[in-house]
């Protein structure tokens, strides 16, 4: 489903003219299979978020190739990448990234609007999904009227509404208490099993990583070798 091959990336840091090269991704290679939950675990600054950004197409790696569903994403232009993301990816962010001016319903509806789905079809799909994530009661609430857990459920619903085959979750429980964290993790597992969605979870939290079928550990831009290759 996702093939990452020999990906390298360097950041330039410092004042203009006096920049310093800092390598953040160093020859990464791995694969993610369809329908599995994969966790990329590492401390802050290990390069795991940068890896997610390159796979998601927010940035292009300096070297290497990333293939998703047989499509080499590095060669796509910005418009093509946006379209590719809309059709193939869903995103769950640590701080939810909901639109503050839109209700829970409208937030979930947004990707369907971008796809050009008619208003009638949108309503049916959003209602069904909000019911599935247990938010039908608060559909017309604005993000600031929802709890952290509810906001993250809205975010998950928004990521799932277009039925993407792959869902990226960047520290999905980073802003939640431990009880709510468990709820969200159970939801992710449930969605993976019932809908067959592939999850790529970026986290520093071992408990979150524990729900994954496979884990990749990152340190200083490299995958750490365990007993069974890169997978720990």
């Amino acid at each position: 489903m996702i093939q990452v091959q020999n990906v390298n990336h360097t950041f330039l840091i410092g004042k203009k003219g006096k920049e310093k090269k800092v390598p953040v991704l160093k020859g990464l290679s791995f694969e993610v299979e369809k329908g599995e939950i994969v966790a990329i675990v590492g401390k802050s600054g290990s390069g795991k978020s940068t890896l997610l950004h390159t796979i998601a197409g927010f940035m292009s790696p300096e070297q290497g190739s990333i293939t998703v569903n047989g499509q080499e994403t590095a060669f796509l232009n910005e418009t093509e990448r946006a379209k590719f993301r809309l059709n193939n990816f869903g995103f769950i962010f640590q701080n939810f990234q909901l639109m503050p001016g839109l209700t829970a319903f409208e937030n979930v509806e947004l990707p369907l609007k971008l796809k050009g789905v008619s208003s009638k079809k949108r309503k049916t799909s959003v209602k069904q999904l909000l019911k599935k994530v247990g938010l039908e009661e608060v559909a017309d609430h604005y993000p600031n009227e929802l709890s952290g857990g509810q906001q993250q459920r809205v975010s998950i619903a928004r990521a799932l509404i277009t039925n993407p085959p792959i869902l990226f979750a960047d520290e999905p429980t980073g802003s939640l208490d431990s009880e709510t964290e468990q709820d969200i993790l159970l939801l992710i597992q449930d969605l993976n099993q019932t809908l067959g969605v592939t999850f790529v979870i970026i986290t520093h939290d071992e408990e979150v990583a524990s729900i994954a079928d496979r884990k990749f550990r990152m340190r200083d831009g490299e995958l750490v070798k365990g007993d069974t290759g890169y997978v720990i």
Binding site: T79, N87, L114, A159
Partner: peptide
């Protein structure tokens, strides 16, 4: 800016 970033992340094209 943040809203535009989210829109782009979830698939809004620069043209849109």
């Amino acid at each position: 800016t943040r809203e535009i970033g989210v829109m782009k992340a979830i698939g809004a094209s620069p043209k849109l």
